[in-house]
């Protein structure tokens, strides 16, 4: 019993949570228990990532179910935000502030004295590497700088739970690497970090845990390797339209990246199932170059799963990166 309670106060818990926006499904029947470390929330546009994060921070209320953040209910902002920092997705700011004023003003709203707020502001601004631009108006910042000053604002009060909605968006590779390093550092300090992204590839490297979400449902959850395995149990189906499908099938089977191939009824196409789409696409390229056969179209069939699968395999997903 005692350890159970301890568990509750060190975890973020969703208990059968659903959120409907009127008729529209936001997320459905989500049950999760998130331990400290970096947890990535990965899914395509409209899958419900922001909805989950807004639920965690009490910005919206669940239609059904219960949420607890380290034992605190999201209805209690005063207690919740002494522990939680949320860097939202939207690139909006209060009018007319400099980066420094932006961070400091809200620290003072938290209740910190002028002196403490000033110290914390500089520490946060330093962490995101914006010292030079601190006294310039946010309106004049670049997109990446605005992203970083929002990050600074959300970590400035030293929360133990950081919720970050697409924090790597708009960052150049340097800033991205720096930011990931900062996240790792924060995780090492014992924080919870929940980071959302479109692209598993991007967060894969730093995550302790991945939650895959699509169309409002949690598809898979677990350690990064566990998720990969789970996805491999659901091979992706791809259809290839071409002039010599039988020939293609023979060549494909020479490799082990395909688990199943099936001729289309009109003999002008082939369905294949693969556990490793990346390897399969490479193979297909090679076959086309070697044999000179005419490929008309290549299209994933299994839509729901595929959308997520694309994230698993990274950049082949068609310019999401």
């Amino acid at each position: 019993m005692h350890s159970n309670i301890e568990h509750r106060t060190s975890q973020i818990i969703f208990g059968d949570v659903s959120k409907f926006y009127g008729e529209i499904l936001g997320v459905n029947r989500v049950s999760l228990a998130i331990a400290p470390g970096i947890t990535s929330l990965v899914g395509p546009n409209g899958s419900g990532k922001t909805t989950l994060m807004n639920l965690m921070t009490g910005l919206i209320q669940p239609t059904r179910g219960r949420i607890s953040i380290l034992g605190i209910s999201p209805d209690n902002p005063q207690e919740l935000f002494s522990k939680v920092g949320y860097c939202g997705q939207f690139d909006s700011f209060p009018k007319g502030m400099t980066g420094y004023e932006f961070v400091k003003s809200f620290l003072r709203v938290h209740g910190y004295s002028n002196k403490v707020a000033d110290e914390k502001t500089w520490r946060a601004i330093e962490r995101v590497d914006l010292i030079e631009a601190a006294h310039r108006k946010v309106a004049g910042y670049s997109k990446g700088m605005r992203q970083r000053i929002r990050l600074a604002q959300s970590i400035a009060h030293d929360p133990v739970v950081m919720i970050l909605d697409e924090p790597l968006n708009g960052l150049d590779p340097m800033a991205r690497a720096e930011t990931i390093r900062l996240f790792r550092q924060l995780a090492k300090e014992g924080l919870h970090l929940i980071v959302s992204s479109h692209i598993l590839h991007e967060v894969n490297v730093m995550s302790d845990r991945v939650v895959l979400i699509n169309n409002g449902y949690i598809l898979a959850e677990g350690g990064v390797t566990g998720v990969r395995e789970e996805m491999e149990e659901h091979p992706m189906q791809i259809m290839i339209r071409c002039d010599l499908p039988q020939d293609l099938a023979a060549r494909i089977f020479a490799s082990d990246s395909v688990v199943e191939a099936q001729l289309h009824r009109d003999k002008q196409g082939l369905f294949i199932r693969t556990r490793n789409a990346e390897a399969f696409y490479l193979l297909l390229n090679r076959i086309v170059v070697e044999s000179g056969m005419n490929i008309e179209a290549v299209a994933p069939v299994d839509d729901d799963l595929n959308a997520v699968y694309q994230y698993l395999i990274g950049s082949n997903g068609g310019g999401q990166a």
């Binding site: 902002p77 005063q78 207690e79 919740l80 935000f81 700011f93 709203v109 938290h110 209740g111 604002q153």
Partner: peptide, 10 residues
Amino acid sequence: SLHYYFLCSL
């Protein structure tokens, strides 16, 4: 920008 207030310990 209202959510910046909503996200304070307030």
